[in-house]
């Protein structure tokens, strides 16, 4: 995936998330991208590690900074401790005219935005961390909720269980929509330019 394709995906995601009622900050875009990649199997090309609020990509953060510098996005400052909201920047319309998000990604973006739009940062952290834990083959399925609590001690065991249940719901919805990696075909994205 080229950096331009990545910009197109992040831009669409930021806009779409807010359309579904999301706060639309960096954390929201980070977690939605993580689900797009790891749950729906759409390769965005970002590398995620477990960080302060769950799965996080430093590459994605750098690209958002570059997108801000290129006026593709604008950051709307919010009072502490809330992070800024991401809005479309002045250069976005022109960028969209030359760079299109591939259709399968468009469907994926609409799906995760719909599913995660109403979730706050805490819920997003739990869902994304649940996905992170469920991908660790060294963690037995019946140990997953405890593992999540171990990784994020501020999360209660009951909240961890609910996060795995919600993740399962999203997984099933994706499958019904023909968007899960096993339901669809794997995607190898080339530049859309």
């Amino acid at each position: 995936m080229t950096p331009k394709d990545q910009c197109a995906v992040l831009l669409d995601l930021a806009v779409e998330l807010r359309k579904y009622g999301s706060w639309g900050g960096e954390t929201h875009v980070q977690k939605a991208t993580y689900l797009l990649q790891e749950l729906l199997g759409l390769p965005t090309g970002f590398n995620f590690v477990l960080y302060k609020h769950g799965p996080f990509s430093f590459d994605l953060r750098e690209l958002l900074e570059q997108m801000e510098a290129g006026r593709l996005i604008e950051l709307e400052e919010q009072p502490y401790p809330y992070g800024p909201k991401i809005a479309e920047g002045s250069a976005a319309p022109r960028f969209r005219a030359s760079t299109k998000t591939p259709p399968l990604f468009q469907q994926g973006i609409a799906f995760v935005s719909r599913e995660l739009g109403s979730a706050g940062v805490a819920e997003l952290e739990r869902i994304a961390t649940a996905l992170f834990v469920s991908q660790d083959r060294e963690v037995a399925p019946d140990e997953r909720d405890r593992k999540l609590v171990q990784l994020k001690p501020h999360v209660q065991l009951q909240e961890a269980k609910e996060a795995f249940a919600r993740l399962e719901e999203i997984r099933n919805a994706a499958s019904l929509a023909g968007l899960s990696p096993c339901a669809g075909t794997s995607v190898e994205l080339t530049s859309s330019l």
Partner: peptide, 9 residues
Amino acid sequence: PQKENGQIL
């Protein structure tokens, strides 16, 4: 402290 969702970071 960065307080978010009851968590202090």
